[in-house]
Design a protein around this nucleic acid. Structure first.
Lengths: 140, 140
DNA sequence: TATGAAAGACTAACTAA
DNA sequence: TTAGTTAGTCTTTCATA
């Protein structure tokens, strides 16, 4: 991972559809180099996936979930990935064990997700935060 | 937003490089239809951006930051988006005001970010959670 | 919804470090 | 031996009917 890699990632994070030729001219190298490096970064797992970030609804939120001590958290998270309007399911350290990042149509939909989580026997408690604003960082 | 849109988004979320022709054949429509819909979804803002998700380091974490009451949070978040290894900066409701989603080389790098946040006069407190596992949801 | 033109990505052969 | 370049070819996208 050198500086050229970081510049490529920076451009792709902002627009993953930027043509290789365009990236190449921005960072002063050839199309082939960019292509080879993107391929390498993908193989190495530095690039996890090419994706789209969406906003299907009006509300983004984090639902923090505490599960009971004797429960295999992965069992819960596997279920939650199947729920609609859930973008990410994170297992985290700290007070709570699972964080759902959701993109919901409205507050009612968020509430339904919270209810659904609370209805699981394994879930002790939930805490919800609305994401009021999201800014993209510089990452690499 | 009908079912076809949802199917397209579902495919793009998993691999945003899937050719329109390939998407079309998967969902039983024409290339032109897929292209027009992706274009529309992008214009409407349902697709926020085409991007890459990366794992440049070994550690992903959330750093929750409380700022003082009399501070304009946006001033802080604008700075934080410039910090390296920061993927997202969220302004959130709840106990804390800002959440940084970071992708750091190692625990030391996470610690440096925490220190950097704590050094800001406007910051009251921080709380960090490691993201132990990330799963992609079904979202739309 | 087709079709052809234009843009972009890929192959493979080559060069340089 | 590895990274970078480039010309030619194939694929995808896009505009038009």
């Amino acid at each position: 991972m050198d500086d050229l890699d970081r510049q490529i990632l920076d451009i792709l994070r902002r627009d993953a559809r930027t043509p290789y030729t365009e990236i190449a001219s921005q960072i002063g190298t050839s199309e082939g180099t960019v292509r080879n490096r993107v391929e390498r970064l993908t193989e190495e797992g530095v690039i996890e996936r090419f994706t789209v970030s969406t906003r299907t609804g009006n509300i983004k939120a984090m639902i923090e979930v505490s599960v009971k001590v004797d429960v295999d958290t992965t069992e819960i998270t596997d279920q939650m990935t199947e729920w609609e309007q859930v973008d990410f399911v994170w297992q985290v350290s700290g007070e709570e064990d699972v964080v759902l990042v959701v993109d919901a149509a409205d507050t009612r939909a968020v509430n339904q997700l919270i209810t659904r989580a609370r209805e699981l026997d394994e879930v002790k408690n939930t805490k919800t935060r609305l994401i009021l604003d999201e800014q993209l960082g510089r990452s690499p």
